[in-house]
């Protein structure tokens, strides 16, 4: 399927060009965040308190990690990783289940490793065998989630009390460790995506696969690495949540694939490859966190978040497709 070959403008994202559209798109995320905060302060007096804002961020920090990985996947033209919930569950279950065997720190690392292996399977099949990413990750997610349920027999795994566990669940300088982790990882991977050869490969592969292959860009490796990275970050997401709430079960990451995708597209990263940025995805995560908090404060039932998320994905991608057609026609 020719999903990734339509970009007439291959190579790195045209970040340096200043047009009315690009100024608007740079400002649109902060504007949306401010607008949502104003709206929230009208809805509830408790919205604009430091405690609520930190809570909002805390709730979305872990899934934000998966969204960062999904940005690499989208930029390199790999569409999306639908196995995120399965890798989150694997990371969480192993991180808690192995605690008594190897200790809390090693168990957390083991959880991240197992999730990375899930990502590796995706990466090999997508990058090297070149199977459609959606089908691969749909299948591997189904398989791994079944495997994780088999591991615990549908039950719950509880965390053993430990200094490491309470550190991860606690605060550092008044800010939750999960929030720190999200921002530090986001900053590092922002630099990786925008300033390193690996980052440039991602843009090149997503912008024009054939041309990149011809210019000796390791196209297969790049795409595979994006999925391994997403597996690793999903594992971190699972470990963070499991240690924060002190328990893990297979449905721990249900729906996270959609949160990650919508954070990516809300930030303006194209699902069809070639352009995007981690900072924009961070903006997307914050917007989603605010929207979901608003839905709770207004008193709408929880599935409304899914409805909003799905509609956002559809609208943003439709606009993206329209803009691409228009620029393509010029």
């Amino acid at each position: 399927m020719s999903l990734v070959k339509s970009d007439p403008n291959p190579g790195p994202a045209p970040a340096g060009t200043l047009t009315a559209g690009s100024v608007l798109s740079v400002l649109s995320i902060p504007l949306a965040i401010v607008a949502l905060m104003v709206l929230g302060s009208f809805v509830s007096p408790s919205f604009l308190t430091a405690r609520n804002l930190v809570n909002i961020l805390n709730a979305y920090s872990a899934v934000g990690l998966a969204a960062i990985g999904s940005t690499f996947v989208a930029v390199c033209g790999g569409l999306a990783d639908l196995s995120i919930p399965a890798n989150v569950a694997m990371g969480a279950l192993v991180a808690l289940g192995a605690q008594t065997l190897v200790g809390p720190v090693a168990a957390a690392l083991l959880g991240i490793l197992v999730a990375s292996l899930g990502g590796l399977v995706n990466g090999v099949l997508i990058g090297y065998v070149r199977i459609n990413p959606i089908i691969v990750t749909l299948g591997s997610g189904f398989l791994l989630l079944g495997l994780s349920q088999l591991l615990v027999g549908g039950g719950i795994v509880y965390s053993e009390p430990s200094a490491f566990g309470s550190f991860v669940a606690g605060n550092l300088l008044g800010v939750p460790v999960a929030v720190w982790t999200f921002f530090v990882v986001a900053l590092i991977l922002h630099i990786v995506l925008s300033r390193t050869p690996f980052g440039r490969w991602n843009f090149a592969v997503g912008g024009n696969y054939e041309a990149s292959a011809a210019s000796a860009v390791p196209v297969r490796f790049t795409r595979a690495a994006a999925f391994v990275l997403t597996g690793l970050l999903s594992g971190m997401c699972g470990v963070l949540i499991a240690l924060s709430i002190g328990q893990a079960r297979p449905i721990i990451g249900a729906g996270y694939e959609f949160v990650a995708i919508s954070a990516v597209v809300l930030g303006g990263t194209s699902l069809f490859g070639g352009r995007g940025s981690i900072l924009r995805t961070v903006g997307g995560v914050i917007i989603l966190a605010l929207i979901s908090n608003l839905i709770v404060l207004i008193g709408l039932p929880t599935p409304s978040t899914g409805l909003a998320t799905g509609t956002i994905i559809l609208l943003v991608v439709a606009v993206d497709a329209y803009l691409r057609r228009r620029t393509g026609a010029e």
């Binding site: 999903l3 569409l79 999306a80 639908l82 459609n132 959606i134 959609f258 995708i261 699902l271 069809f272 039932p301 599935p303 409304s304 978040t305 899914g306 409805l307 998320t309 799905g310 509609t311 994905i313 559809l314 991608v317 439709a318 497709a321 329209y322 057609r325």
Partner: peptide, 30 residues
């Protein structure tokens, strides 16, 4: 979504998957 708005069927139906599942839960109260 696919023919008029030119959204790739993978992404379009991924979004309607989520919309449909949420709608079913909303209408039925779960």
């Amino acid at each position: 979504a696919v023919v008029v708005f030119k959204v790739t069927s993978l992404v379009a139906t991924l979004a309607t998957l989520l919309i449909g599942a949420s709608l079913a839960l909303l209408i039925s109260n779960g």
